[in-house]
């Protein structure tokens, strides 16, 4: 039960989440990647809180992060639904409106 492994796990989760965010073609996958990264952060916080149990700041912060994560997911999916209505696609590479109109 060495928390060091949890930290390694968190790092791997971050890398996988990053890869998901960068490479997948669906907005849902991107959201899943973000969830993975946030979970890795939570994992880290809980592991360190386990090592230093004088206070429970780690766990408190985890709670807040969870709240914000659920907010972010809800927002993301709402936006995704709107995008699906608007562009008939949820592939981010098809949506280029940030670029100047060439």
């Amino acid at each position: 039960m060495n928390p060091t492994y949890l930290i390694y796990t968190a790092i791997v989760l971050v890398a996988i989440g990053t890869a998901l965010v960068l490479t997948r073609k669906s907005l849902l996958f991107i959201l899943i990647g973000i969830e993975l990264i946030l979970n890795a952060v939570n994992l880290n916080l809980v592991a360190f809180n386990h090592l230093y149990p004088q206070n429970v700041n780690g766990q408190t912060t985890t709670l807040f992060i969870m709240a914000i994560a659920i907010c972010e997911t809800a927002c993301g999916i709402a936006i995704m639904i709107q995008v699906a209505r608007q562009y008939k696609t949820i592939t981010p590479s098809s949506i280029q409106d940030l670029k100047e109109q060439a």
Binding site: L22, T23, P92, L98, K99
Partner: peptide
């Protein structure tokens, strides 16, 4: 310079990372 501004969200993220 404009070439890097592709308009793809994932490209921006890539450069950020």
């Amino acid at each position: 310079v404009r070439v890097s501004r592709s308009g793809y969200v994932q490209h921006y993220l890539f450069w950020f990372l």
